[in-house]
Write a protein that binds this DNA or RNA. Structure first.
Length: 169
DNA sequence: AAACGAGGTTCCT
DNA sequence: AGGAACCTCGTTT
């Protein structure tokens, strides 16, 4: 796996890629790049990691520029996780830009309605932050309940998306 | 408003 | 294997 750190509208992002496509995308606080990398590599302990910012830079650029989200050049992604997690993430991928869903709604689709917390855990462990719209999930009552990389960042992303939406319209 | 328990899955020891 | 943690939710103090 190749990885590299790149600037983004929301801070530094760690991009992890395999020869089959994008595998990981995580936000890092300034100075905490190492911790973020550890956090990611823990997900796939058996993988070999090589820093190659040149390989990951184009991916980072593409992900954060909606103008490049074209169906004729789909972003290739690789989802590595348990059955449950992958199901949750695939459900999330169907949430449209600017849309929102709830943990319990996903839970009832993937498992039972009471698995909301499990969904929360799975969403939180989502290695493809931002690409998989884990930030468009809100609590049942419409509140932003939590975010692995900070509620502040979650709000920033939602605001950014709202801006992109009005720009497109 | 705060505390609590149920509930599903995964992580860590 | 056992316990704790998690981006939850509904109910009870």
């Amino acid at each position: 796996m190749n990885y590299g750190f790149h600037p983004s509208p929301f801070g530094v992002v760690l991009v992890i890629a395999t020869d089959r496509g994008l595998a990981g995308l995580a936000f890092a606080e300034r100075g905490e790049e190492k911790a973020t990398l550890d956090d990611m590599t823990r997900r796939w302990p058996k993988a070999r990691y090589v820093e190659d910012a040149a390989a990951t830079a184009p991916l980072a650029q593409r992900v954060f520029d909606p103008a490049l989200w074209r169906s004729d050049r789909p972003l290739r992604i690789v989802m590595i996780g348990t059955d449950f997690e992958v199901r949750v993430w695939e459900t999330l991928l169907r949430v449209p830009l600017g849309g929102a869903t709830t943990y319990s709604a996903i839970a009832s689709k993937v498992c039972t309605a009471k698995a909301a917390r499990a969904v929360g855990a799975a969403v939180g462990r989502n290695p493809l932050s931002f690409v998989v719209p884990c930030h468009r999930v809100v609590g049942k009552n419409g509140d932003l309940t939590g975010y692995h990389w900070g509620l502040t960042r979650k709000r920033a992303i939602l605001g950014w998306e709202a801006g992109k939406l009005s720009a497109a319209a």
